[in-house]
């Protein structure tokens, strides 16, 4: 469904990704794990079109994404939940969700999608008229994911959904992610919380210093000696 091959990417003169190749198949929940600054977020930015790769190719279904602009990529069915959620704090919860359905493809089914999102996150319905800035950390993350779902994505990119949340909330959020995946949305999850991500994912890639250094099923990687030593302590 999604295929990155030989991606090199840089911020100005600083190269961050080196020959990154990743594949995500339809229906999968794939994790991309690694430490802080390894290039996880950059990989997502390249997929969602916020950063154009210096070389390499990206394809999604039958489209080449290399030259597509970020807003077109959303239209094609890829939606990213950015790091920290980046919800629109000055707007109501409902307005945030409505903006999620901005693209034409999603807008026509907005009301239906909204029902679905409220089913997954009942809390959001309770708070729909509240200003998003007044939400708690966990609720913000739910809103960010719900907002991304409003665009009816085929592929959902999640950037550190556990960031800054209490362990109990992390567990809840991860359960919801599994549920979303079970309902047919392909997920690429980026996480620093390696153990939790590997337990959740069907397959995973390990990224280090901008290079993919390992891949396999979550279980395999969990038992992998170098991964254990580096990330699981």
């Amino acid at each position: 469904m999604l295929k990155l091959s030989g991606i090199n990417a840089a911020y100005k003169d600083l190269q961050v990704l080196w020959d990154v190749s990743i594949q995500v198949d339809e229906g999968e929940l794939v994790a991309l794990v690694g430490s802080n600054g390894a290039g996880k977020t950059t990989t997502l930015r390249v997929i969602s079109g916020l950063l154009k790769p210096a070389s390499g190719s990206i394809s999604f279904q039958d489209h080449s994404l290399g030259k597509e602009s970020a807003h077109r990529i959303v239209e094609l069915g890829i939606s990213q939940v950015p790091e920290g959620g980046k919800i629109f704090t000055g707007m109501s919860v409902l307005e945030n969700l409505e903006l999620g359905a901005f693209v034409a493809r999603a807008r026509k089914d907005k009301d239906q999608t909204l029902k679905w999102v409220y089913e997954i996150f009942p809390r959001l319905e309770e708070r729909k008229n509240q200003r998003a800035g007044t939400l708690s950390g966990g609720e913000r993350q739910m809103l960010a994911i719900g907002r991304a779902l409003m665009s009816k994505p085929k592929l959902l990119l999640l950037d550190e959904p556990s960031f800054g949340l209490a362990p109990i909330l992390v567990e809840q959020i991860f359960e919801m992610i599994t549920e979303i995946n079970r309902q047919g949305v392909t997920v690429l999850l980026v996480e620093q919380n390696v153990r939790a991500a590997l337990e959740l994912a069907h397959r995973a890639y390990v990224i280090e210093n901008g290079r993919i250094v390992g891949q396999g099923t979550g279980e395999d990687l969990l038992s992998f000696e170098s991964v254990r030593r580096a990330y699981l302590g």
Partner: peptide
């Protein structure tokens, strides 16, 4: 609303399409 979203955070707005 798209305009207000862009005021708040243009990158997040881009990710909305």
């Amino acid at each position: 609303k798209a305009l207000r979203a862009t005021v708040e955070n243009w990158e997040a707005a881009t990710l909305m399409g």
